[in-house]
Write a protein that binds this DNA or RNA. Sequence first.
DNA 1: ACAGCCATGTAACTCGTTACATGATTAC
DNA 2: GTAATCATGTAACGAGTTACATGGCTGT
Lengths: 185, 185
Amino acid sequence: MSQPLPVTAFALLGLLTLDDASLTGYELKQRADVTMRFYWTSPAMSQIYSELARLRRLEYVDTDDHDLTTRYRANEAGREALRTWLAEQPVGFPVLKHAPALRLMIGRVSSAREMRAMLADYLAELAIARADLQSVRTELGAADGPGEVFRYPALVADWGLTFFDAEEASARRTLAALAADEALD
Amino acid sequence: MSQPLPVTAFALLGLLTLDDASLTGYELKQRADVTMRFYWTSPAMSQIYSELARLRRLEYVDTDDHDLTTRYRANEAGREALRTWLAEQPVGFPVLKHAPALRLMIGRVSSAREMRAMLADYLAELAIARADLQSVRTELGAADGPGEVFRYPALVADWGLTFFDAEEASARRTLAALAADEALD
DNA sequence: ACAGCCATGTAACTCGTTACATGATTAC
DNA sequence: GTAATCATGTAACGAGTTACATGGCTGT
């Protein structure tokens, strides 16, 4: 019956199952900005609202309508839909759209100097992103033990920190290699 | 004048600058499958052809029309367009759509057992991908020294291998953590 | 002869974005 | 009073996908 929903719909539904709170679309966007954006994407507001409308139509969420706002909470049908999705759909390999690597690939039309500047910029942005994620991770520390509410989100945050550290290592290694290349001239 | 081209257009143009060969759309797709797919995406055939048509319209590529096939080669205008793009556009942060991490985030509605199975599946796919990339890296070894044709692609391949290694480490660490959680029950 | 690969392209569609529009509430 | 934030939604568009259609060429 349920024709395949976009993954982002499950992702948003998943965000609603992290606790029992009832959220507005606006609040859901904020939650996506501090969690989902690190390993998926934080959808635009307009998409949040249209996915919420779809989840409501499918009755995967319960809604509280007020004057001007609507609050959404995942219900049991929604949790069951998530369980089915987790169990039946193949995992799916990560998709990485890595602009710095793409630029590096074509470094030959440019110069080692330009590529080094690009990598330095990337390292700066990386440091900011890592600090953001680290502060999220620290907040999750309040309940990150086995069986506690933030257990899984904390495991994901640790995964993300490992990714950022690997990125930093790759960027620094490449930077050093290009510096050595330049020294040859 | 040139209204912003999608990054994928530059990526494909970049693939055409890796050497002086003149490629068909079909061959370009094969090249994308062994290189670009690891850090960007390998576009569908239909998109390859439409991007090539656009690059031709912009005169960033020279074309050889035969009976049934057309061969494309980046020209100097194309190289210059790439240089301008590299110099003027901000780097852009990697976008990661990481399905295993997304699933892990909502592990609470499922079970540690199910999450462990998911991670085991992911590790298996990861090993295949890593082996694929490693064999590409080995081929690039023919000319990966400073100033040689495969210098930059090799640096990118090394970056990718580091990424896969970090992924494996994260998956194994998480698997172990979940095994410990299960042992508590 | 048939399978599989080489080669190109159109059509329909979905996802997701930006731009636009509206209006309430809160803080200074 | 006016700026920022909260809150919701529509419209237009672009990127990218799958499905479909066609046909040559090569090996068995």
